[in-house]
Amino acid sequence: MQSNRSGSPASRGLLAAMHPTGQAGLTARFFALLNDRRFLPLMLLTPVLVFFIIWNTIPLLWLLGLSFQKYSLTSGDDPAFTGFANYLEILGNSSVWQDLSRTFVWVFLSVVLQTGLGVALGFLFWGSHKLPGRRIALTLLFAPMVLTPVATGTFFRLIYDPTFGILNQVIRAIGLPSVDFLGQSSTAFWAVLAVDTWMWTPFLMLMTLAALGSVPKAELEAAEVDQLPWHQRLRLIILHHGKFILMLGVLLRTIDSFKTMDLVLQMTKGGPGSTTNLVALTLYRQSFESFNLGWSSALAVILLLISIAFTSIFIFVLNLKRRGDAA
């Protein structure tokens, strides 16, 4: 065990030869620490932990502290401790509840649509290995995902424009009246949702392809030999192996969709009226337009708790399934 902690005799001899002075002892002790199983994990974790504490833990605690204070950057007043006043104000604010309910509808619709389309496209590409141009098609399909939401929002705002937009040119060309997609409360939400779906369906397609890639070929071949019906192949083999990756994709999209702000800000500013005003946009406005830092910190904490709840539910369901499978 001794040799494990302080390196092999050969290496110790080499170090001593290289550093004949006291520094050799220091270096040797460093390498000895590296080789020590008690310290190695801690040393490997330290840089990550330092970053985590600086960039995550401290800001989070700061946010939590601010959420209990009345603090407006433009008031010129010092922050004042108000206990749960901000939380109570938010919970009693009908506008926030409206924004939250709109956001839940947004999350549900976007995740369902994107998962449905993404899975369908994933299956299509999974079975098309010999299709000419497959790689180009895949690259093009993934392109929306890598564009910034601000750029995408700008493109689509122009595409949807009733006067200049290409979509309305097409609509008019087939003899229909032009539609003010982003200016009408009946269409704006759906128009923005369509863009979000266009952007993020490739992500679910990617996750589907990864999930399908994790299915053992041998089991599929066995199913082929046994002439298992397709729905049984899907349930017993494909979903059995691929569901965790797929669920991870759904979980990531759910959390991400809950935070949607930039696309809406660029396309409609939350309007017309409040038709597309998602809760993340309210948070942005209160933080960076109104500079109500106490109030917006409290809202951020509430949204964080909701995100954690989402994640916990997903993980619980996954673990439940896993335990069920194991049993």
């Binding site: 009408q184 409360s185 309007g271 017309p272 009226g273 409040s274 038709t275 337009e289 109104s290 500079f291």
Partner: peptide
């Protein structure tokens, strides 16, 4: 900014027929 944000939302909600 806060006062403006409230009325921008409300006035446009009327113009667009939401209210």
């Amino acid at each position: 900014a806060e006062m403006l944000s409230v009325q921008q939302e409300a006035f446009t909600s009327f113009m667009t027929g939401q209210t």
